[in-house]
Design a protein around this nucleic acid. Structure first.
Ligand code: FES
Ligand code: FES
Lengths: 155, 155
DNA sequence: TTATATAAGACTTATCAGGTCTGAATAGGG
DNA sequence: CCCTATTCAGACCTGATAAGTCTTATATAA
């Protein structure tokens, strides 16, 4: 019923990346740590992080005391990067976004459609935001990393 | 694979509404007419239009020579109206939008999540656009109504 | 050599998008 | 009054996918 919603995978991926950005320069974090602090199913998160590794955003250390760290500086990783790594290109409608170039056989009226410009504008608005927001940006805005357990204390 | 995409239903609904807005004041249009001009599966469109009728956006005339017309002025119907009628409230992530008010038990970190503000900003950007764009707006920008058949002529 | 991690990938399950099909009810024309 | 064009209501179908689990293998610190 809710429209245009991002998948859980993307949500989890971003939470994990933000989590790691708060630990930048420190010890690697295990998947168990991240999963419980962020309230994410552990096995599911494990798979998501693999995707992030394969896209070069996360570095892993195997074995005991192992875990994950950011592979690049938090200031160089944008929301767009993470979203596209996990879900592929964002496209608010079939005829806009990365796939929009060859959508003349997907969308019957392309490119003379009356509402095409509206979808393009919407696409630009969100992509501008996602492309210009880095992990470092949200870290800066938030002094401390919120955790699930904190709510118990705060509650 | 494409992320955050609107459903075909919404796309079809908007096309049909724009189509009707071009006929404003004229004869009712049958579902067959709209479907073939816009390249939409007829039976599917029939159901979609029923939703639009139930939400008060479309008026129907039954029987021979019957069909559909806009129930309200094209200048008073926004993209937001149509999208929400068909798909329910837009919410780019589980914690924003209409359902965002009581999302403290959906989203584990709400409302102290580090990235919540980013999703809220994205939500605002697209909703501002959808809420301020009416059917009359896109009709004005486009002189004539594009149809599937026109492409054959235009070659 | 054991406990602690990640790595890879097959597997499951329920929901749902995107339709289709059937059979009404309604209205205009002859 | 009947035929045809149309909308209306709702059940039904089908393949894909989101969201997650399970299993086994591999690496490494202590
Ligand atoms: S909706 Fe895709 S070109 Fe119009
Ligand atoms: S993602 Fe929902 S509150 Fe953070």
């Amino acid at each position: 019923m809710p429209a245009m919603q991002v998948s859980r995978k993307v949500d989890y991926a971003l939470r994990a990346m933000i989590y790691l950005s708060f630990q930048e320069g420190g010890q690697p974090c295990s998947v168990g740590q991240i999963a419980s602090d962020e309230g994410i199913p552990k096995k599911f998160l494990e798979k998501i992080i693999q995707d992030l590794i394969h896209h070069g955003f996360v570095h892993s250390t195997r074995g005991a005391q192992g875990g994950y760290t950011l592979a690049r500086n938090a200031g160089t990783i944008t929301f767009k990067d993470v979203i596209e790594a996990i879900e592929g290109p964002v496209s608010l409608n079939v005829c806009v976004g990365e796939s929009g170039e060859r959508s003349d056989n997907i969308c019957t009226l392309y490119p003379r459609c009356a509402m095409l410009s509206v979808w393009q504008e919407a696409q630009n608005r969100v992509m501008d935001l996602f492309a210009s927001t880095t992990l470092a940006d949200v870290r800066t805005r938030h002094g401390a990393l919120p955790r699930v357990a904190d709510d118990v204390v705060a509650g």
